[in-house]
Design a protein around this nucleic acid. Structure first.
Lengths: 232, 232
DNA sequence: ATTACAGTGTGGTTAGACCACAGACTCTCA
DNA sequence: TGAGAGTCTGTGGTCTAACCACACTGTAAT
């Protein structure tokens, strides 16, 4: 077993045992190195991996943002991983879109009325009405979908949803260049968003799920993702 | 931007541009360091991250298994990430199980008859009939479920399925100790597996999906995962 | 009291050395 | 001529020891 894996194992144990909790600080790299009788290099490699996994955040200096702190950001971490694999051409974008449809439909169907995430979603829609440039619109759109997914209350689904969206974010941005008429498209997307949110708030999960699926597939189809996700 | 992130960016570009493909070798660490004008340490940190993401595999020595090679194993990488987050107690096991049900039901419904993965699944069932100890059985069980998911032909869903299963592998192993009668349970599980596979082979996706959902929920419920996944 | 500055501890980076490993090569000897 | 032993080379794995930038903390000078 490689040295940095030993460090990883040790840290994972600290987490499992509850000795290290969210917001907690890891010992300094030099201290850990001495405690585990390994070099600082190996400690750093382990920390790098945890950072890539979204489990810790490293900050220099001193004070509140300094040191290596335990966080919980599985979404962005999974997103980076998926993005890299898309780059290797072994995760087709069509499969990602299809999976998004699957997860978001499920979440829309089970979204619970009254949770804070839904209020945030509504606020985001208002902001989108005033967004002028495309990138701002897309960023708000991403947050809206994530908020909607959160309303279902399953953190794994939320994280995966966010990661899928993140993995193809640049891709989606590029796609908009293919659109014949962005104004028309954005107007349609905004209307669809309202309809989805209304269905959710009316406790009509089935309709919400169908609308979400059509919404996502419609966008990528119009923007020209060659492959058509298998129809439900 | 930190140095190792620069290296990561460079490698990702090589992948995107197709200069680096599956099975291909990265330049040696020393060569990359010189080419990018950074230290070997920084190159190594980048490689460690890619390794954690399941994008490359590092091997010492010389010959076919040596050097840093591009692979495509998103499943195990995502699994490690999820496992760590479970350790931080911010991804409840119940949510993972629920997501498994979601993904596997979907996959079972769309599994295509005749693909190699289904033949492998059938072979695994035969092996499970002869498996004596629990851990062997569970390992085969995991492979069966992954094979079933692969039959749907969506690589993202397959990878996520595998990762979810991997994230709670140890957990599942521990759970079996809670079972009152392993022989009875394993007999039931085997019968359920056969029924699922039969439904798939009869092109009865709806039934297959229902059976899979019941199969997974039943196991965790019997084994005592407190939380009950929200009913469909 | 306010300000300037040195001190301290954090992660970030580097250079250079040595190790174990595994295949390729070469030399020796039967 | 063939087989075996020994050497060479290049890979990643690890370690040490230094230096940097940063951000707060305490202290001393004004």
């Amino acid at each position: 077993m490689r040295t940095h894996e030993l460090v990883l194992q040790w840290i994972e144990k600290q987490l499992s045992d509850g000795d290290l909790t969210l917001g907690g600080r890891l010992p300094g790299e030099r201290a850990m190195a001495e405690q585990l009788q390994v070099s600082r290099t190996s400690v750093r490699e382990a920390v790098r991996i945890l950072e890539a996994m979204g489990v810790v955040r490293a900050g220099v200096g001193s004070g509140k943002d300094a040191g290596t702190v335990v966080i919980a950001e599985p979404g962005s971490a999974l997103g980076s991983t998926l993005r890299l694999h898309v780059a290797t051409r072994h995760l087709p974008v069509a499969d990602i879109v299809e999976t998004r449809v699957l997860l978001e439909s499920w979440a829309a169907e089970r979204a619970q009325v009254g949770v804070p995430a839904l209020e945030e979603a509504a606020a985001l829609l208002d902001q989108m009405d005033e967004a002028s440039d495309i990138d701002t619109f897309l960023a708000l759109d991403a947050r809206f979908h994530v908020a909607l997914a959160q309303a279902a209350g399953n953190s794994v689904v939320s994280a995966m949803m966010a990661s899928l969206r993140g993995a193809i974010e640049n891709y989606a941005s590029t796609l908009t260049e293919n659109l014949p008429d962005w104004n028309a498209t954005s107007t349609r997307l905004r209307a669809e968003h309202r309809a989805i949110l209304n269905a959710v708030n009316n406790n009509d999960g089935g309709t919400a799920a169908r609308l979400v699926a059509a919404h996502i597939q419609g966008f990528y189809k119009e923007a020209g993702v060659g492959n058509n996700p298998s129809p439900k």
